[in-house]
Design a protein around this nucleic acid. Structure first.
Lengths: 232, 232
DNA sequence: TGCCTTCATTGACCTCGATCAAAGAGTTGA
DNA sequence: TCAACTCTTTGATCGAGGTCAATGAAGGCA
């Protein structure tokens, strides 16, 4: 039920700093398209060109398609995130909703061109890009050098940082993604994800509540399982 | 034998577009430090703060240290690249030379602060960051969903794009990195890297010349081995 | 409330790549 | 030119995680 003006204002309040060139504001307003997508529905994108996406509401996954239905989830995104969706080169990328989501899309080239004269906005975009890069690098470590157990622990801690809520007994997570999504993100299978969660449950490190609820009972000990460097 | 002024000029010609604010130019000149590092030597960095690095000459690897001597190479870099080296969070990062290299380093916070008013420079940095992000995402696919054979083929093609030279018989590579580096980059072991190269050699897809030379005899067929999406 | 579909869990078995071990090729310096 | 490294290749074995198959929740809808 999001309307376009509301959505754009939300975007502007985060990425168009006060005092930004009014012409740029109007230009971006003209470029933006609001799209609502249902759970497990992919954003209909022009694969041949890069796109910028602002996630107004909901949660999404950025999926890279390797050959023959082997998908790799490159990143998860939540409301407020800006996502740069690459054009197809050796692999193709798409944005898919984990639950009902509202999204503003911008054609990549014209978006960057519009932003190119506005340092404040470029700064915001650079920040966003650097955050994505840092997350992607951490994922590289996870996928390249960690065991299944470490991957799951890392995943839970990463999600805790982003969408966890502190409760008396630990940190509570309401995961919007399925076991398949977790597996596709960590380079594992759903069976392995499930088995590792069971092991963590048996070690009293987590509790699971239905399909989406996870309670991290001992985040500190979980960090040891994640293969993180010990605090210096 | 690189001197500072030469190195900085090279950096300026690539990242400080013509007509850039003269004060910014001087400010960055003051922030830069030239360091020469030998093969397998790591750049002595302040782990606690982010650093920007400009690679003047040579070739380097960006290494992430997971616990207990398990290293993951996050990216390779060649002359002209700008590298953003993250501060230590859950893992620590370092830049290590593949061969003798010359490097300009800038403290991350002050570098970004200096650039913040200059749209032309921010644009260049955003480009660099987006290129790194795209490469990192492709690596994510490789590490998350590809077999050892596909990883090696992908690696060879990626290197061909960056440092390959066309010759009559194919594409020639003079790899600056060891088998260990390749393994640490692809999430494999040196033995597996060696075995896969042998298989490619036996399939007449490549020839190897000494330790560092590789000749890609049939890049098109190698793309099929890389698990790339078929051209649309 | 209870069926019914979908998603998650558990079990049995197998495979790819890791590990351990040894031999072979490239470089470097005397 | 040879000796002594280091780096790479090859072989034998092992194990973590994948695959295949069946059972067991959860949530949606009549």
């Amino acid at each position: 039920m999001t309307n376009f003006d509301q959505a754009f204002d939300q975007f502007a309040s985060r990425y168009l700093p006060a005092g930004v060139n009014e012409a740029l504001h109007r230009q971006l307003f003209g470029l933006a398209r609001l799209i609502e997508i249902e759970r497990e529905q992919s954003l209909p994108l022009d694969e041949s060109a890069e796109q910028f996406v602002y996630l107004v509401e909901g949660a999404t996954k950025l999926v890279a398609h390797a050959s023959q239905s082997r998908d790799q989830i490159v990143a998860f995104h939540f409301a407020g995130d800006v996502i740069s969706v690459p054009a197809r080169v050796h692999h193709s990328y798409s944005v898919c909703a984990l639950r009902k989501s509202a999204i503003l899309t911008f054609p990549g080239d014209r978006f960057l061109e519009a932003a190119s004269g506005e340092p404040a906005m470029l700064g915001k975009l650079l920040d966003a890009s650097r955050t994505s890069l840092l997350r992607c690098r951490e994922k590289t470590i996870t996928l390249g050098r960690k065991s299944a157990a470490e991957r799951i622990a890392t995943f839970l801690l990463t999600m805790a940082e982003r969408i966890g809520s502190e409760v008396e007994t630990g940190v509570h997570l309401d995961l919007p993604m399925s076991r398949r999504d977790i597996a596709d993100s960590l380079g594992l299978t759903i069976e392995t994800v499930s088995r590792q969660l069971t092991l963590l449950r048996e070690s009293k490190l987590i509790e699971t509540l239905g399909r989406s609820g996870v309670l991290l009972l001992d985040p500190a000990r979980l960090e040891d399982c994640a293969g993180y460097l010990r605090a210096a």
